[in-house]
Amino acid sequence: MSDGLVNMTQRRGFNLKDGGQIVGVLIAFVVICVVASLVAPQFLTSYNMTIISRDLAFIGIVAIAQGMLLLLGDIDVSIGAIAGLCGIVCTKLLVDAQLDPALAISAGLAVGAIAGAINGTIITMFNLNSLVVTIGMLSVYSGLNLWITKGRTIVGLPKEVTVLGGGTLMGVPVPVYIMAGVFLVILFLTTKTVYGRRLYAVGNSREAAKIIGIHEQRVRITAYAVAGALAGLAGMLLCFRLVSAQASMGQSWLLPSIAAPVIGGIATTGGIGTIWGALLGAAIIAVIGNVIVLGGVDVYLQQVVTGAIVVIAVALDAITRKMGRG
């Protein structure tokens, strides 16, 4: 859905640097919002906006993490489980060990980075398919989550941290600020730094990247680690929001984490798109999810609708891309 519009805007003088490719997604987002406000009068209320933005905060962070990997032509379907693992570890440290919150959160981030780096190392060292490896690791990490929690919910988080998940600042939920920070940092990382150039280069062509001396393994493992840490951050925020930790946390993030970047124009084959796309894609998914609820769609049908929208968006993207080429 993005690329057809990309081509149009490029002809008018936009280009990748201007973020021109994102214009199409932005238009789609605005259209969806307009339709939503017409269909459901409650959509534009400030209460509803708070709900959407909080959803967006969590989906946004994992979408940005997955978006980085997709830019490389990689994927990590275990980031939801990694998020859960980090949330559980952090909660345990806070509740059982009474650890200082800053230390516990740092430990959670470290667990996420290590888990991601393990995935990346296995994939790059043996040159394996990232989808297959991370499906395996998804089982490993969710199994760990069950084992650590013994299937029970851990409660008793201190106030200092629950405010990070549930509090608001100037009417806006705190996680939204954190997600915005993550977005800015990763946007800077991918577009302005040496590392970002290497990331795009490897995503465009691993062979060409090797020939000009880029250590593609290092670049990829780093991205997996960063994605793992970000997933961990999202997982911990979710614990703080729920004031508890349980094994199934993060499981529902798999679909949006992949769908959001793809809707936003990041190609799964790597090298195409920007982190803007991950953010806007996440926003579209958050809004659609909200509209389904407001519109009174049967709870049990919601998954069907979200899934179908994702598939349609991907197909549209492929079709417009083909037409753009012809």
Binding site: N15, R197, Y200, A201, S205, A208, I211, G271
Partner: peptide, 19 residues
Amino acid sequence: AHGIFPHMSVRQNVGAGLL
């Protein structure tokens, strides 16, 4: 396949080799 970074601009292709 092994030379250019097809979806990057000329500028970025240059930059990638001269970081």
